[in-house]
Write a protein that binds this DNA or RNA. Structure first.
Ligand SMILES: [Mn+2]
Ligand SMILES: [Mn+2]
Ligand SMILES: [Mn+2]
Ligand SMILES: [Mn+2]
Lengths: 144, 144
DNA sequence: TGATAAGTATAGCTATGGCTATATTTCGTG
DNA sequence: CACGAAATATAGCCATAGCTATACTTATCA
């Protein structure tokens, strides 16, 4: 039974489920970005993270503290931020999903820039089943 | 120039934009639900709102206070909740968008129940342009 | 090498949105 | 019409996520 690994502790109520997805959204965006920065610049610095997330430096620091608490990243004072194995795995999944959502929206006729904007929020609420449906459409297996 | 009326104060950064959409999400869901309850039961009571949102009664009361502060609803102590004209207009827009998103996902091959779950989060991040693209697909004007 | 600049941490504030426990009001019924 | 039940409000707690101001550490370069 595939796709089941994402369904642990799924709340019955749809609003509760959306709230849970939202709670994970910030963590997802941070790990993805830290992964990006590490790949691009060789390291992820708080200042760069803050700039790209469009938040103040102390806000970024605080969110990074949460990443560390949840075992997704590590850092030592005045030094850069690093993803744990778990963090890196999450980053890869999140990045792939982000790209799929953007590509799918573009396929639906949405302009690139708008697709990128909308995807940044939408991605966090797309279940594995829906993601697979998007991938199927992109592969040309049109369900219509 | 249509669709422009939704683009006032759109932030440049995509993360900032997603944060703004998120801030509006709770208000949107509440007004839609208050509209639903009013239509179904003749009135929207705090207890019913709380039950459907899957939150405690005090949490619902507090969110309703925010709705009132923002001019979307009114209520007197120990009495039901009513939408203002602005709140009712927002509720109608939100409800229509919700239905479009669900219908679109179902068209993409997503099962009803999952479409309903995902849509509850996705809907708040779908711009007017993307919504129009979804509507076009539903009308059969397939972009592929 | 030491002063300055840059980067990071910390303090302390706000708003939001959860919760439980409890007070208060209204409602329904005998 | 009074009393108990149901509904609502209030108090007070917590976590998250934003901010500015400021302290501290590290890096750079004259
Ligand atoms: Mn995102
Ligand atoms: Mn993303
Ligand atoms: Mn919703
Ligand atoms: Mn909805």
């Amino acid at each position: 039974m595939p796709d089941t690994f994402l369904d642990k502790d799924t709340p019955a109520n749809r609003f509760a489920r959306a709230r849970e997805a939202q709670a994970a959204a910030l963590l997802e965006d941070y790990v993805e970005m830290i992964g990006d920065l590490t790949a691009e610049l060789g390291e992820a610095r708080v200042a760069d993270i803050a700039e790209r997330m469009n938040v103040s430096q102390p806000t970024a620091t605080k969110s990074i503290a949460r990443l560390k608490r949840e075992g997704l990243a590590t850092s030592r004072p005045y030094r850069g931020v690093f993803l744990t194995d778990e963090g890196a795995r999450l980053a890869d999944r999140v990045r792939a999903r982000h790209r799929t959502v953007v590509a799918f929206l573009v396929r639906m006729g949405v302009p690139e820039e708008i697709a990128e904007l909308d995807a940044e929020g939408i991605e966090h609420h797309v279940s594995q089943v829906t993601l697979s449906a998007f991938e199927a459409v992109l592969k040309g297996e049109d369900p219509a």
